[in-house]
Amino acid sequence: METPQTVPVFDGHNDVLSRLWRSGGPDAASRFIRGEDAGHIDLPRAKAGGLAGGLCAVYVPSERVLDADGNWPTPSRSEALDVTTAMAGLLARIERESQGGLKICRSAADIRTAMDTGAFASVLHIEGAEAIGVDLDLLYLLYNAGLRTLGPVWSRPNVFAFGVPFRFPSGPDIGPGLTDAGKALVRACNDLGILVDLSHLNDAGFWDVAEISDAPLVASHSNVHSICPHSRNVTDKQLDAIAETGGLVGINFGVLFLDPQGNKDKAMDLSNLVRHVDYIVDRAGIDHVALGSDFDGTTIPDALRDASDLPKLIAALREAGYDGEALDKITHLNWIRVLERTWGG
């Protein structure tokens, strides 16, 4: 009988680069490679839990001081440039020092090869494009460095769009849509084959991307707004549009985006997470749901201490009635299909 450990997971979002960068020190790459007690992901725990790879986010933190409207302040471009290049460089160092343990993937074929050979299939992702100027020159440089997915915003405004603030209960219809620079960014991403991530965009920005983009619509780490009415979760109308384009929603493990009352309940049962999967499957179909854990970037249930506990989630999904074919789609095949269609080959 197939065991949960045999199901590989390709995950739509993690913040391990942010965690390693924040902790500092010249040994950040080696700590990821050899393993440590901190955080949710490193190579040993990934192997133990079947985490075969995922989108590794570059995120520039905001100062922990909210503005008058309760929003996070946007970092300057110079600050964002320093942090973005540092984290992208850190990922490159990990690849070099891991001696085959991690591979930066630029194509779906790269992901399949890495998974087949046991390397961690890492995709460079930017969560908030503050480092990129309106001339977009840095976008092309980062593409050559391996950038293949990009969220124009985190949950704060920048020159490209308006990031949806963290609010509960609230819909995502907060603020204006894409700027002219943001529309140009989406078109450039389409031309290059960079996936545009919708997870932190507000409602107006979502529909602007839907109108402009010719690629599948993807919310890499969001949940169901009809279950948990958090501003960061996708509405039924958004979910329908995502499905119509062949896109997907990556289920976020964050308790604040799972709990119907918006509680920070770390003791919640994994059935709460399965409920969000069920909803998307029932409304949109099995091809349009995947995983977007937000490991190392949010508070997750105690039942999923870190990446090594992923077999518990596989077991919960299996118990809920998902067979081997469905589990393969949820855990990795849907992501690879959407990335391949977006990237081309």
Score class of each variant (00 low, 15 high):
D309M: 10
F120N: 11
D82Y: 05
P301S: 14
R19Y: 03
G285A: 14
V338K: 00
D173S: 09
I314Y: 04
D110R: 06
A114P: 04
L256F: 06
L327F: 10
D135F: 09
G247M: 08
D137H: 08
V338E: 12
P176F: 09
V186M: 05
V277C: 14
Y279Q: 05
S107M: 08
L90G: 07
N334E: 15
R156I: 02
D110Q: 11
I41L: 15
G53S: 07
Y140V: 00
R112L: 15
H221I: 04
P260Q: 14
P73V: 11
F162C: 10
Q99D: 08
G193S: 07
L201N: 08
S122T: 04
F160I: 02
L142R: 05
S226V: 12
K312L: 15
A181H: 15
E127P: 02
A181M: 09
I104E: 04
D116Y: 01
S308Q: 15
Y140F: 14
L102T: 12
T85Y: 05
A68G: 01
W21V: 07
W335T: 04
G12S: 07
G39E: 11
V249L: 14
V274Q: 00
F257L: 12
V164E: 07
I300D: 00
R19A: 10
A181K: 06
P157Q: 11
L138E: 08
L310M: 15
E36Y: 06
D15G: 05
A48W: 04
M87A: 09
M268W: 01
N202M: 13
P229C: 14
K264M: 13
P216F: 02
V60S: 00
L138F: 03
V58I: 15
V159Q: 08
R337S: 12
L201F: 12
